[in-house]
């Protein structure tokens, strides 16, 4: 993609304005959604509370399918926020894309691998933290040599592949969706009225599909995060 981004250097780190702004917008949208739905919490739920409880039940069931013994209750909040954040991030670029003076400012933050790696980092840090907390540091290290010792290199490698597949799967799906949308846009502008009209149904179909993919990928990311955490928390 030939998008151009503004960068800010701060404390020796380079920040991509488009990514950070999009992350911020997604986070604020998620917060506004959840905040608005949780204003009147009563024993007999109203409409808004029902929606919120439905979402919570959904993410709780994801956690429960990975950790059926109830030890996953402490990850319920994480799964809930993660799912909503990724879902909103995926849809953000389909709804608005802001370009000012050739520079992109707002898009789906998940079209950038660094953002998805950031999210995957949170999941993996959680899994390692809780594994050390549960087994102690020695037990945590010895878990790499289980069930048999010669699997040690494979287990070590798995940590990296888990991280990469988790983050790059999300990035690839969302990025591909936006690339194809942009391509359809290029087709529309290529010849004139004929291609413009022909591209409209294509764009509609692909946008609908992208919404679907965005939802699926949010679900997959949350599910796999929980699976990785649960695998770190059990001894083979």
């Amino acid at each position: 993609m030939d998008d151009k981004y503004k960068f800010i250097d701060f404390l020796g780190l380079r920040f991509n304005v488009a990514n950070d702004l999009s992350v911020l917008i997604s986070a604020i949208l998620v917060f506004i959604l959840v905040f608005a739905l949780s204003r009147k919490i009563t024993m007999r739920p109203g409409k808004a509370q029902n929606v919120l409880e439905w979402m919570i039940d959904f993410t709780n069931s994801i956690v429960k399918s990975a950790m059926p013994d109830g030890s996953g209750r402490r990850f319920n909040l994480y799964a809930f926020v993660l799912f909503l954040f990724i879902f909103v991030s995926n849809q953000l670029g389909l709804i608005i894309q802001v370009k000012v003076g050739g520079f992109t400012y707002v898009k789906s933050p998940t079209t950038n691998p660094l953002i998805t790696m950031g999210l995957a980092t949170i999941s993996l840090l959680l899994s390692h933290y809780y594994a050390v907390k549960k087994f102690g540091f020695g037990g945590y290290l010895s878990n790499y040599a289980r069930p048999v010792k010669f699997l040690l290199p494979i287990n070590l490698l798995e940590e990296f592949t888990n991280f990469l597949t988790l983050s790059l799967r999300l990035y690839g799906n969302i990025f591909a969706g936006e690339v194809l949308l942009a391509l359809i846009g290029t087709v529309a502008k290529s010849v004139g009225a004929v291609t413009f009209v022909a591209a409209i149904p294509l764009a509609m179909v692909w946008q609908g599909f992208s919404v679907f993919i965005g939802a699926i990928q949010a679900y997959v990311f949350t599910t796999l995060s929980m699976v990785y955490i649960s695998r770190k928390l059990e001894q083979e």
Partner: peptide, 28 residues
């Protein structure tokens, strides 16, 4: 390479989780 983005998403996600926990998750 904008490595700051990773830090940014980490921090904003944690803040979001805390805010959601305080305003919605806890009560509900």
């Amino acid at each position: 390479v904008a490595l700051g983005d990773m830090l940014f998403v980490l921090v904003s996600f944690i803040i979001l989780a805390l805010a959601v926990k305080h305003f919605a998750w806890g009560p509900i």
